[in-house]
Simulated scan of single mutants.
Amino acid sequence: MNLKFLGEVFVTLLVIVDPPGMVPVFLALTGTMSNRDRIRAGTQAVLLALGVIVGFAVAGQTLLDYLHVDLPALQGAGGLLLVLVALQLLTGKTDEPAEQGGTSNVALVPIGTPLLAGPGAIVATMLFVQRAEGFDEYLVIAIGILLVMLTVWIVLRFSGVIVKLLRPAGIEVLTRIAGLLLAAIAVQLIADAIGAFVRLEAVGL
C-alpha cells in the first residue's frame, strides 16, 4: 500500500472538511435536539457525505460532462445554498423546525452537503481519482475517504459534551457566530467560482 499517497489523501480531505470548524455550525443547527437525535443527525450527515463523495469519485466527471456543467458552477451552487443557511442562523429561524421534529433535513442539508461533502472535497477527490494508477491506488483513496469520514463522525459524536458546557444561552451566541462564519465561507465559495469562470473564459479566448 502506498502510505505516502494515503497520507496525502487523508490530510488533504481532512483539512478541506475541517471537523473542528464544523463543530460550531453543527451545534448551532442541532442545539435544540436531544443528545440521541444529535448523534443520529451526525451519523446521517456523515453517511450522506460519504455517499456523495464516493459517488462523485466514481462517476462525477462523467455526470458533469453529461450535464455540461463545469466544476465552478457546482462550487457557486454550494455557496448560494450556504448563504440561505447562514441567513437562517443569523435571524434565528432554525429553532422552530428543530422543535417540530424536522431535524433530519438539517442532517442532510446543509451538514451532509454542502458542508461535509462540499465542492472542495468533491473536486479534491475527483483529482485524486484522475491521478490514481491501478486498483491499489483506488483502494488507497477509498481508505483515505473512510478514515476522514470516521474522524468527522467521532468529532460530531462527542459534540454533545460541548452543548452541556455552553447551555442554551451559549448555543444562542454560538448560532449567531456560526451564521456569520458560514456567510463568509459562502461568499468565498461564490468568489472562487466567479474567479474560476473568468479563468475558463480567458483560456477559451
Rank of each mutant, 00 (worst) to 15 (best):
N2I: 02
L3P: 00
K4P: 00
F5Q: 14
F5C: 10
L6K: 00
G7A: 14
V9D: 00
V11K: 12
V11G: 11
V11S: 13
L13A: 02
L14Q: 06
V15P: 01
D18S: 08
V23H: 05
L27K: 07
A28Y: 04
T30R: 02
G31F: 12
M33S: 13
R36V: 15
D37E: 15
R38I: 01
R38S: 10
R40M: 07
A41K: 07
Q44E: 11
G51L: 09
G51W: 06
A57F: 06
T62R: 04
H68D: 11
L71E: 04
A77G: 10
L82P: 02
V83P: 08
V83S: 05
L84C: 10
L89S: 11
L90S: 08
T91P: 14
K93F: 04
T94H: 11
E96T: 13
G101I: 07
G101W: 05
V106I: 14
A107N: 02
A107I: 03
L108C: 05
V109P: 09
V109T: 15
P110F: 10
P110Y: 05
T113P: 08
L115W: 05
G120T: 07
I122Q: 02
A124W: 04
A124Y: 01
T125K: 05
F128R: 08
F128D: 09
Q130G: 03
Q130I: 00
R131T: 02
A132Y: 01
G134P: 11
F135M: 07
E137L: 14
L146Y: 01
L146C: 10
M149G: 05
T151L: 05
V152I: 15
W153I: 00
V155G: 01
L156M: 12
F158D: 03
G160N: 05
G160R: 04
I162K: 01
A169V: 08
G170D: 07
G170S: 09
E172R: 15
R176N: 07
R176H: 11
I177S: 02
L180R: 09
L181D: 09
A183Q: 06
A183P: 07
A184W: 03
A184T: 08
A184F: 05
A184L: 13
I185L: 14
I185Q: 13
A191P: 06
A193M: 03
G195W: 07
A196G: 03
V198L: 13
E201V: 15
A202I: 12
